[in-house]
Design a protein around this nucleic acid. Structure first.
Lengths: 153, 153
DNA sequence: AATGAAACGATCGATTT
DNA sequence: AAATCGATCGTTTCATT
């Protein structure tokens, strides 16, 4: 870890974010370098964990995941014990794509992607039966205006 | 579009989500098929837009993006004109990683990834000077419990 | 759906700057 | 120390069966 990242690294990461399928030669040309140094930098960035995963982004609707909810959670329980159980439950449920612990009066936010509203209800019932939560608000997405994983390097 | 997706397609997509860098042979072995049919299916899935992008997921903190906000927006304006302008503003701002139009009394939710709280304020001031919004609540993430782009196929 | 071959790209060591 | 070159090996791509 603790790798110093310079402008060339950022350019390379930008290219990989944009299209991870392009060849080394192509990336090298675009960033104004050549194959070997680019390859060495990518290797180091992977080792350091800066590049976490190489993946494909899929069209959720085409695959039948037509409902996306943002779930705001307030809890009264703040004991380590309860939290451990809650986090474990979230990590184990594959329909929870994102989960964050928040500052302020809302304690957690989740992004939950499911087939339909009924599937959300099933998820919700299962979650509250596993762990006690004080208050839950579900926000239903009507339209995905934008969705990207690309950091603005 | 309108491609029929069967179980074999789903298995292949699952493998690609898990690790898009693995070779065709490896994917074929894992899904119990062989190179050519797997290759043909992947090609069709790309053409149909089911596979939208091949990319790398980066460690935001390692790259200095230490602040993540979820922004809840209420607006009084609901004219087509205003909306066009608002959506355009969101799409053009690279710090907005996600934006959804919602059902219910909150109209929009954004996920905004920036270097620090000051950078968020800059973003916020720029946004509200571009388009009128009625009410904005920013939720600051203290901890990313989970973050994945993998659909549970 | 399998085979196999040609084109292409990744990887890495040797050589040069 | 770091870039270039080039050999080798593996992979993709696609025509044929």
């Amino acid at each position: 870890m603790a790798l110093r990242i310079d402008d060339m690294d950022k350019k390379i990461l930008g290219e990989l974010q944009r299209d991870a399928a392009q060849s080394l030669d192509e990336i090298a040309k675009r960033v104004g370098s050549s194959k070997t140094p680019v390859w060495n930098r990518i290797r180091k960035l992977k080792e350091a964990g800066v590049i976490r995963q190489q993946t494909v982004l899929l069209d959720a609707e085409a695959l039948g995941f037509e409902a996306c909810f943002f779930v705001l959670i307030r809890t009264s329980e703040h004991e380590a014990d309860w939290q451990q159980k809650f986090l474990k439950a979230l990590r184990e449920r594959p329909e929870v794509l994102e989960a964050h612990r928040l500052a302020g009066d809302i304690d957690y936010i989740l992004k939950v992607q499911v087939q339909n509203a009924r599937a959300y209800d099933t998820f919700y019932q299962a979650l509250i039966s596993e762990v006690k939560v004080h208050n839950v608000t579900a926000l239903l997405s009507m339209e995905e205006i934008k969705s990207t994983s690309m950091l603005p390097l």
